[in-house]
Lab assay of single mutants.
Amino acid sequence: MTSCHIAEEHIQKVAIFGGTHGNELTGVFLVKHWLENGAEIQRTGLEVKPFITNPRAVKKCTRYIDCDLNRIFDLENLGKKMSEDLPYEVRRAQEINHLFGPKDSEDSYDIIFDLHNTTSNMGCTLILEDSRNNFLIQMFHYIKTSLAPLPCYVYLIEHPSLKYATTRSIAKYPVGIEVGPQPQGVLRADILDQMRKMIKHALDFIHHFNEGKEFPPCAIEVYKIIEKVDYPRDENGEIAAIIHPNLQDQDWKPLHPGDPMFLTLDGKTIPLGGDCTVYPVFVNEAAYYEKKEAFAKTTKLTLNAKSIRCCLH
């Protein structure tokens, strides 16, 4: 018999989150649709729960009410004593943790798909938090293969000092899905179709896995975050240069030392320094102006996964 890495157990509980950011409308629209008619997301033997994560922000069509829901799922915020004085999103995070967690427990949901849009030209993107997770690498390989020839990129946010504390991190297997470009507060049919297909293929993978299909060893190309880059700023902290036209919409493309990065209003080009080629992502993302992030630098690498098969009882 072929030796293989056996994944822990079959997958039982899956959640699909929309509206973690209330103005990213593809996930909101799909989740609302699936709450009314969820036939397309159901798979035999699998509990799939669509869920609106930040209903107040969705109602106002804004990213958040008090603070970013997708950055506060750490033990400090989840452990705060519940009171009306807490920011709305912290209270909501505790409610979500109660419903789908608790985080880092045996009772937490197996998989959470968190649906997002970006204003950046990132196409279909899967966000991975753990480079050693054979199950998710296999799932992402399946999704990428199923979507081809449509490109699907994998963004690895594993980093020693950049801690995200994402909404989906309460699950055993957290999956971020990011599709763009799409303006905030807008629905685009092409973007919706791409996100819908990503979810379909992900659920198909889980179904095949649960039925005992063995997935042979595989490898995927990923883009691992190195650092986030702020806009150049003046002495008052105001933005002093904008994304250069040569960099705009060039997510995932190589940016070499000396290539144009920013452009000042008086026409001066600010190039990339250093001696390493990087791959920019979230270029000129609207939501990241407040976070002082013009783009993120990534490096390209390959992740390998062992063969996996479900432990059938």
Score class of each variant (00 low, 15 high):
Thr166Glu: 13
Phe17Gly: 03
Lys163Asn: 10
Pro217Ala: 10
Tyr231Asn: 01
Asn37Asp: 13
Gln250Phe: 05
Gly212Ile: 03
Glu293Phe: 15
Ile157Asn: 11
Ala148Trp: 11
Thr302His: 08
Val154Asp: 01
Ala294Val: 02
Pro254Glu: 12
Ala39Glu: 13
Leu136Tyr: 01
Thr62Ser: 08
Asn134His: 11
Lys292Gly: 10
Gly101Phe: 05
Gln94Glu: 10
Asp193His: 08
Val58Thr: 10
Glu211Thr: 12
Val179Met: 05
His207Trp: 15
Ile137Tyr: 01
Lys81Ala: 09
Thr145Met: 11
Cys310Phe: 12
Tyr88Leu: 15
Val14Asp: 02
Asn70Cys: 06
Ala219Arg: 08
Glu290Arg: 13
Tyr223Pro: 00
Lys300Pro: 10
Phe295Glu: 00
Glu9Ile: 12
Leu99Pro: 06
Asp104Ser: 15
Leu162Asp: 13
Asn133Pro: 03
Asp68Cys: 06
Phe29Gln: 12
Thr62Asp: 10
Ile308Tyr: 03
Lys13Glu: 03
Lys200Thr: 14
Phe17Met: 12
Asn284Phe: 02
Ile112Gln: 02
Pro232His: 03
Phe17Ile: 09
Cys310Gly: 12
Phe205Val: 00
Ile52Arg: 00
Pro260Met: 04
Lys297His: 06
Lys224Trp: 03
Pro174Tyr: 10
Cys4Gln: 14
Met139Ala: 00
Ser83Val: 10
Leu203Trp: 01
Pro280Ala: 04
Gly267Cys: 07
Tyr173Ala: 13
Gln94Arg: 07
Gly185Ile: 02
Phe100Arg: 05
Ala287Lys: 11
Cys4Asn: 08
Arg309Gln: 14
Asn304Tyr: 09
Glu9Gly: 11
Gly267Asn: 07
Ser131Cys: 07
Asp251Tyr: 02
Gly101Arg: 09
Tyr142Val: 00
Pro151Val: 05
Gln184Gly: 10
Phe140Asn: 00
Asp266Trp: 05
Cys152Ala: 10
Pro183Ser: 11
Ile11Leu: 14
Tyr164Arg: 08
Leu86Pro: 08
Ile206Met: 04
Val179His: 03
Glu9Asp: 13
Tyr289Lys: 15
Lys32His: 13
Lys32Thr: 11
Cys67His: 11
Asn236Ile: 08
Ser169Ala: 08
Thr44Asp: 13
Gly22His: 11
Tyr231Gln: 01
Ala305Asn: 02
Leu150Phe: 08
Leu187Cys: 05
Arg91Trp: 13
Leu263Trp: 08
Tyr223Asp: 01
Leu187Met: 10
Glu178Ser: 08
Pro254Lys: 05
His207Ile: 08
Thr118Lys: 06
Leu147Gly: 01
Lys200Cys: 14
Leu247Glu: 02
Glu36Ala: 08
Tyr155Thr: 12
Leu35Arg: 14
Glu47Lys: 14
Trp34Lys: 03
Leu192Lys: 02
Ile225Glu: 11
Arg91Thr: 14
Asp251Met: 00
Cys310Pro: 07
Gly79Lys: 09
Gly274Phe: 03
Ser131Leu: 06
Ser3Pro: 14
Gly101Val: 05
Pro280Asp: 01
Leu192Pro: 03
Asp230Ile: 14
Tyr279Gln: 01
Leu265Thr: 08
Ile143Asp: 00
Asp251Val: 01
Leu46Asp: 01
Gly19Arg: 02
Leu263Gly: 02
Cys311Ala: 12
Leu75Ser: 14
Leu192Gly: 01
Gly22Phe: 07
Ser105Thr: 06
Tyr64Phe: 14
Glu235Cys: 13
Leu263Lys: 11
Lys200Leu: 12
Val14Ala: 07
Pro102Leu: 15
Gly38Tyr: 13
Ile225Leu: 12
Asp110Gly: 05
Ile177Lys: 03
Gly123Arg: 06
Tyr288Lys: 15
Ile143Glu: 01
Pro216Met: 05
Glu129Cys: 06
Thr53Asp: 01
Ile137Thr: 03
Leu272Arg: 02
Arg196His: 03
Pro160Thr: 11
Leu247Trp: 02
Thr167Trp: 09
Phe17Ser: 03
Glu238Leu: 09
Lys197Ala: 15
Pro260Thr: 04
Pro216Arg: 05
Thr2Gly: 12
Pro280Ser: 03
His141Leu: 02
Leu86Met: 12
Ala294Thr: 01
Lys300Glu: 03
Val179Glu: 01
Thr44Ile: 11
Phe140Arg: 00
Gly176Arg: 15
Lys172Phe: 03
Pro271Tyr: 06
Ile199Val: 08
His98Gln: 11
Ser169Trp: 07
Gly176His: 08
Tyr279Ala: 03
Thr20Asn: 04
Asn70Met: 14
Glu211Val: 07
Pro149Met: 03
Tyr279Pro: 00
Leu303Trp: 01
His159Ala: 10
Asn134Ile: 05
Ile199Arg: 00
Asp193Val: 06
Asp259His: 06
Glu84Asn: 07
Thr20Pro: 03
Ile157Tyr: 12
Cys276Met: 13
Leu272Gly: 04
Leu247Pro: 02
Leu272Ala: 13
Arg233Thr: 11
Pro257Lys: 05
Phe262Trp: 08
Gly274Asn: 06
Pro149Thr: 04
Ala294Trp: 01
Phe140Lys: 02
Ser108Asn: 13
Arg196Ile: 03
Thr269Gly: 06
Asp130Pro: 01
His207Val: 13
Tyr223Met: 05
Gly27Gln: 01
Leu69Ser: 06
Pro181Met: 02
Leu187Thr: 15
Pro271Phe: 13
Ile270Glu: 05
Ile206Tyr: 00
Ile127Arg: 13
Pro257Phe: 02
Gln194Gly: 15
Met122Trp: 01
Thr145Ala: 08
Leu150Asn: 07
Ala165Pro: 13
Lys60Glu: 13
Glu235Leu: 11
Leu69Phe: 10
Asn97Leu: 13
Cys311Trp: 09
Pro254Gln: 06
Thr264Arg: 08
Tyr155Val: 11
His207Arg: 10
Ser146Ala: 14
Asp249Gly: 08
Gln194Ser: 12
Thr26Cys: 12
Ile177Cys: 05
Ala240Val: 11
Thr277Met: 08
Asn97Ala: 08
Ala7Arg: 11
Phe215His: 03
Ala296Met: 09
Ser108Tyr: 11
Asn117Trp: 03
Leu263Asn: 04
Lys200His: 12
Ile96Gly: 09
Gly274Glu: 08
Tyr64Pro: 05
Ile220Glu: 03
Pro55Asp: 13
His33Asn: 08
His98Asp: 12
Val229Leu: 05
Tyr109Thr: 10
Glu84Thr: 15
Asp275Trp: 06
Ile111Val: 10
Gly22Glu: 12
Lys163Asp: 14
Gly180Lys: 01
Asn121Gly: 04
Glu178Gln: 15
Gly19His: 04
Thr269Glu: 06
Gly18Ile: 02
Glu227Pro: 01
Lys60Tyr: 14
Met139His: 00
Lys228Glu: 11
Leu265Gln: 14
Glu36Pro: 04
Asp190Ser: 10
Asp249Thr: 02
Glu76Val: 08
Ser3Asn: 12
Pro216Asp: 06
Ala219Lys: 15
Glu227Tyr: 03
Gln42Glu: 09
Ile16Phe: 05
Ala148Val: 09
Ala202Gly: 11
Asp68Met: 04
Ile72Val: 10
Ser108Asp: 09
Asp230Phe: 12
Ser169Gly: 09
Leu162Pro: 08
Asn304Trp: 10
Leu86Ile: 13
Glu24Ala: 08
Gly101Tyr: 05
Gln12Ile: 07
His10Ser: 14
Tyr153Trp: 13
Lys228Tyr: 15
Tyr153His: 14
Gly22Tyr: 06
Leu247Thr: 01
Lys228Ser: 14
Ser83Phe: 07
Tyr142Lys: 00
Pro245Ser: 05
Ile270Leu: 07
Lys200Ile: 07
Pro151Lys: 15
Ile96Phe: 06
Phe100His: 06
Phe295Arg: 02
Asp190Pro: 03
Glu235Ile: 15
Asn236Gly: 08
Thr20Gln: 03
Ser146Trp: 07
Gln250Ile: 02
Pro174Leu: 11
Ile127Phe: 12
Glu214Tyr: 14
Tyr109Pro: 07
Lys297Val: 14
Asp85Cys: 15
Glu8Asp: 10
Cys61Pro: 05
Arg132Ile: 05
Leu156Trp: 14
Leu187Tyr: 03
Thr277His: 07
Ile226Trp: 11
Ala294Asn: 02
Thr26Tyr: 02
Asp104Asn: 09
Arg233Ser: 13
Asp204Ile: 00
Ile191Ser: 04
Phe17Lys: 04
Asn121Ala: 13
Met195Val: 07
Glu47Gln: 09
Glu235Val: 09
Tyr164Asn: 12
Glu89His: 05
Asn134Tyr: 15
Asp234Gly: 12
Pro217Arg: 06
Ile11Arg: 05
Lys32Arg: 09
Ser146Met: 09
Ile308Ser: 03
His208Val: 09
Gly123Ser: 05
Arg196Phe: 01
Gly273Glu: 08
Val31Lys: 00
Ala57Tyr: 05
Cys311Ser: 08
Gln42Met: 12
Cys218Asn: 04
His5Ala: 09
Glu290Ser: 08
Pro216Leu: 06
Ile226Asp: 11
Leu136Lys: 01
Arg91His: 09
Leu126Asn: 00
Arg43Asp: 00
Arg168Phe: 09
Pro87Tyr: 06
Val229Ile: 09
Val278Glu: 03
Tyr64Ser: 15
Pro216Thr: 07
Leu99Glu: 13
Thr118Trp: 01
Ala296Tyr: 08
Leu247Asn: 01
